[in-house]
């Protein structure tokens, strides 16, 4: 929670909002090396790449604030993408609805399993991830399957005022979810449960319901992302969403949201994800080999975690 203390603790404030510092630093440095970075075109590209997976980041942010995690988000995205490709012959709308329905259901299953079994969400979603990935590989027979209905592509390519429809959708989702998180009963319950599950239980918050709901919403968001992926690339493959979980988790953490839960905002997650995508974009521009890119993302996660562990935010002595 962004608390405004009477006396502003500057160190704390910077630590809480360090993502902005990072982003500014990144843009300044990269621009200095390669002026092609901050151009209208490149920024557009960045936002295009951002908008689809970014929706997943919204869900992951809520989950981490809740004190949970979901490794299967990429798999859900892949499943939804797959469904919309395969159901294209039946019409665009049915395909989209079915995909979103299935993805949301998958999210719900994750939530139900985690809550009912009492097992930590980490190993459970590892299991569901494998399960769902496996299903996609089976259905696609490990091939990349192209879609048959070309008009599906129009969904993603529509432009309004020169900006892609998907970008509008993404921004809208960010705004809506941030509002719910900060101002509505449901959102504040998420923060409370993430802060201390027992205390939340004792004051009568519907802890289990909140948890299942957040997993379901994450499934919903991941499935929308999956549908958009299908719309943009018109291909179903088991490889879609492979890197998503890692990228999105790193994004949320870099944005300044703590893994232990109870605090954070969608805005922070947004900027965190912006940072990751910009970084990847920059690495491409600077002609880094793609494998180096993977290494750097992994290393980044570790560095962020380490910094988090050492910062003042950890109240070690009370």
């Amino acid at each position: 929670m962004k608390g405004r203390l009477r006396q502003i603790n500057y160190r704390q404030a910077i630590s809480d909002n360090r993502i902005f510092v990072f982003i500014v630093a990144l843009f300044v440095i990269v621009q200095a090396i390669n002026p092609g970075f901050i151009t209208a075109n490149n920024v557009k590209i960045i936002f295009q790449n951002l908008s689809i997976e970014g929706m997943v980041a919204i869900g992951m942010a809520m989950l981490i604030i809740l004190g949970e995690i979901d490794l299967s988000v990429g798999a859900i995205m892949s499943v939804s993408c797959c469904v919309s490709i395969y159901l294209q012959p039946y019409g665009i709308l049915p395909a989209i609805l079915a995909s979103i329905g299935i993805g949301t259901l998958a999210g719900f299953l994750n939530g139900a399993l985690v809550v009912k079994s009492g097992v930590s969400s980490l190993p459970i979603t590892l299991g569901t991830m494998g399960l769902m990935n496996g299903i996609v590989y089976v259905v696609t027979e490990s091939q990349s399957v192209p879609g048959t209905n070309k008009s599906f592509l129009y969904v993603a390519d529509t432009m309004i005022g020169g900006i892609n429809l998907v970008i509008y959708l993404f921004i809208a989702l960010v705004v809506v979810f941030e509002f719910v998180l900060q101002k509505c009963y449901f959102g504040r319950s998420i923060m409370a449960v993430g802060g201390n599950r027992f205390a939340a239980e004792y004051v009568g918050l519907r802890v289990d319901r909140v948890r299942v709901l957040v997993f379901t919403l994450t499934g919903l968001l991941s499935s929308i992302a999956g549908v958009m992926t299908a719309a943009r690339y018109n291909i179903a493959s088991g490889h879609i969403g492979e890197q998503t979980a890692l990228a999105v988790i790193t994004a949320v953490l870099i944005g300044g949201i703590s893994l232990s839960g109870g605090e954070g905002s969608i805005t922070k997650a947004f900027f965190g994800y912006l940072f990751i995508i910009s970084l990847q974009n920059a690495m491409r521009l600077l002609k880094f080999p793609p494998d180096l890119s993977t290494i750097i993302t992994g290393a980044l996660l570790i560095v962020i975690l380490a910094i988090d562990a050492v910062t003042i935010r950890r109240n070690q002595f009370k």
């Binding site: 504040r188 923060m191 409370a192 205390a199 004792y202 004051v203």
Partner: peptide, 21 residues
């Protein structure tokens, strides 16, 4: 500490939680 309060939250959140509904 473990059951009564949300330590990382502020007073408003801790006290307000029971009146939300």
């Amino acid at each position: 500490k473990e059951e009564g309060l949300i330590l990382i939250a502020d007073l408003q959140d801790n006290i307000g939680v029971t009146v939300w509904h």
